[in-house]
Design a protein around this nucleic acid. Structure first.
Lengths: 375, 375
DNA sequence: GGATCACGTGAATCTGAGG
DNA sequence: TCCTCAGATTCACGTGATC
């Protein structure tokens, strides 16, 4: 097995003992190569498996005029069966090396993606989303017999229903001009200077994916320092973007031509690091401040009156940090829920306090404490 | 079996002896009902089968209102095996009644579409395209745990590789401003007055499809006078659009409530009244370019410094498209507002980037991406 | 009467830390 | 592993009331 070592490790050494396969391309068959990795060792997988476009040839028989539906069915079963076996094998290998909360992204077209998706489900993977990559510049349908095939499908799956994968929701929302990122991604094809060409000017790989696609996948489901596996490495788009974004990679590839192109490509990239890689964090990342802290710190006195935003509900703050509203007592959340007759409530944003002439949510006080803590 | 006869036949009599089932809704199980149709008797099929959604508990919006989920009994299956068996059964029944060159459209989501697609292939169907219906107004992801599920997938398949289905290429191209119709269709959900409501104002069917979707399907793959089958008729969108466009329909439906609603709906339509209408187009607004696109496309590197026009304020671009300026972080718009102490700001014109000796607003970069997309 | 705003709602596999 | 409970979380668009 040939192994590529890029300069990555010297730039960003793994904190502990760095495994030999990190930031390398393993040459060989996908299943055989993955067997050399420890189980539960990667944080994310991006897979661009063969689409099996030649499948059509298998279906075409020379004496097709005599083929009846039953024989036709048999032919297809045979060749789909082979693709399914291949798919099950690599998915099982990938599954073994995935950490329990790792994310798997698989891209494909209508030729193969339905089989991949069904097998994923059969193997116990849990689908989080399917995503459509809409190509702004697809190849037209020359014969005018179908719709222009203008998209590919990406399946985001995890190992089980209970997995808690990385999902940088706030980062993606900020990325998308403060709107939730949707399941449709409008991105151009890989063309121009990004497309790797050989000495003859021919494209090195027939289906090189654009870096923008990997950028979005890695931003969504990985963190700096994570290990990203690509079992069909090709010309190394996954590795290139991983290195740019400060992630480690490991690739598997059978063709030496692709390995050579990918190696040169990745070596020319600088490992990303620094403040530029920090991502927007949500409220959950902030330290938890119990409501009692507002009393301890003197920001609120026992006996203070809180109101709902519309002023309809009143509550008194008691010395232990509980509220009393009529016959209801309990935490800010519980009392907020009870006065509204609901099952849950975010007391921080529901209850308001009068400060001077203005009324503001007690969440503002929490923010003041948090900024004090940071200082 | 209850049979609905609409007024269609009197308006557009079938040339030969018109079968009793034409322009009717057959009540009952899909397979049993289809057994009563002659083989090779329909020109097109549109199928909207149960999606096999697997919902956890209740889901509430941030304002505490409860999402009215699709939890109907007909959408519940015990296992993937059960769903697969159901799918194989109805697809085989449909296959028998399809003419050799008939088109089959099946719509689904990631819960079921991969299984449907794989089974289609296993049964010998030939996939022509997969089409994505991009919803302009999907339900958001309220908990921020996934991408907004903003699309559904439609598979267009025929009975065999050799089938020559109807495809009204030129009509579609004309509809699409002289561009080939692509595999991504941007259409809004079925809402407003089009959505059927009962006396309580509740929706009659949880998953009524928009007529615009059927309009496009029927225009693409059928001709006036053709017979269109919908084995999961629901509230009859397929029948309604078929009648408007001068196609005959035949539907199968188990629930009397849906049959009643569909009957009334279709009877109110005049045969062929919509045939001269121009097809509903998706909005072709200028594509929205989120700031993150500038990073994925490599136009801006993480760590780049942006300034306000007067140079007073600086900010660092981070990999996720967020800015960091002092202790402020967020989108270009939010940070622009914060550094100025204002409530809102157009980050595109506020922030500037140095390119060579010149400093220009980042909006210039956005324009470059737009022109690239147009090219 | 036109503009504005509050409100409702859509095929959804929708929490997680701590005890 | 289970239970408890703090507390985080939404976009587009149509309708109808109000100004």
């Amino acid at each position: 097995m040939r192994v590529l070592r890029t300069g990555v490790s010297s730039v960003a050494p793994h904190p502990h003992s760095e495994p030999a396969w990190l930031d390398t391309i393993m040459k060989g068959d996908c299943v055989a190569a993955l067997n050399k990795l420890p189980s539960k060792s990667v944080d994310m997988v991006f897979a661009d498996p063969p689409y099996n476009l030649q499948l059509g040839g298998d279906l075409h028989r020379p004496d097709q005029s005599k083929v009846d539906a039953c024989d036709d069915h048999w032919d297809q079963f045979e060749s789909f069966e082979a693709y399914d076996a291949f798919t099950r094998a690599w998915l099982l290998s990938v599954r073994r090396v995935m950490k329990d909360d790792a994310s798997l992204y698989v891209i494909g077209s209508y030729h193969n993606i339905f089989r991949v998706g069904a097998i994923l489900q059969d193997l116990g993977f849990w689908i989080m989303n399917d995503i459509v990559w809409l190509k702004s510049n697809p190849m037209p349908n020359f014969r005018g017999k179908r719709f222009t095939n203008a998209h590919e499908t990406i399946i985001w799956a995890v190992k089980s229903k209970d997995a808690k994968p990385t999902f940088n929701y706030d980062a993606l929302k900020t990325f998308n001009d403060d709107l939730q990122m949707r399941s449709d991604w409008h991105l151009p094809l890989c063309t121009g200077s990004e497309r790797l060409k050989d000495d003859n000017g021919d494209k090195v790989h027939p289906t090189q994916k654009p870096e923008s696609l990997l950028y979005r996948v890695l931003t969504a489901s990985s963190n700096p320092g994570d290990v990203v596996l690509d079992p069909f490495f090709g010309t190394g788009t996954t590795g290139a973007v991983a290195k740019k974004l400060g992630r480690h990679f490991v690739g598997v590839e059978r063709e030496q031509t692709y390995i050579d192109a990918a190696t040169a490509r990745i070596e020319a990239i600088e490992f990303g690091q620094g403040a530029g890689l920090e991502m927007q964090k949500g409220k959950r990342a902030e330290p938890r401040i119990p409501f009692g802290n507002l009393l301890e710190s003197g920001m609120i006195e026992p006996g203070t009156e809180l109101t709902s935003a519309n002023g309809k509900h009143l509550a008194i703050v008691r010395a232990d940090g509980s509220l009393k509203s009529g016959s209801f007592t309990g935490s800010i959340h519980k009392v907020g829920a009870m006065v509204q007759g609901q099952t849950s409530c975010n007391g921080w944003t529901y209850w308001h306090i009068k400060r001077g002439r203005k009324t503001s949510p007690i969440d503002d006080l929490r923010q003041e404490i948090r900024s004090r803590l940071r200082a």
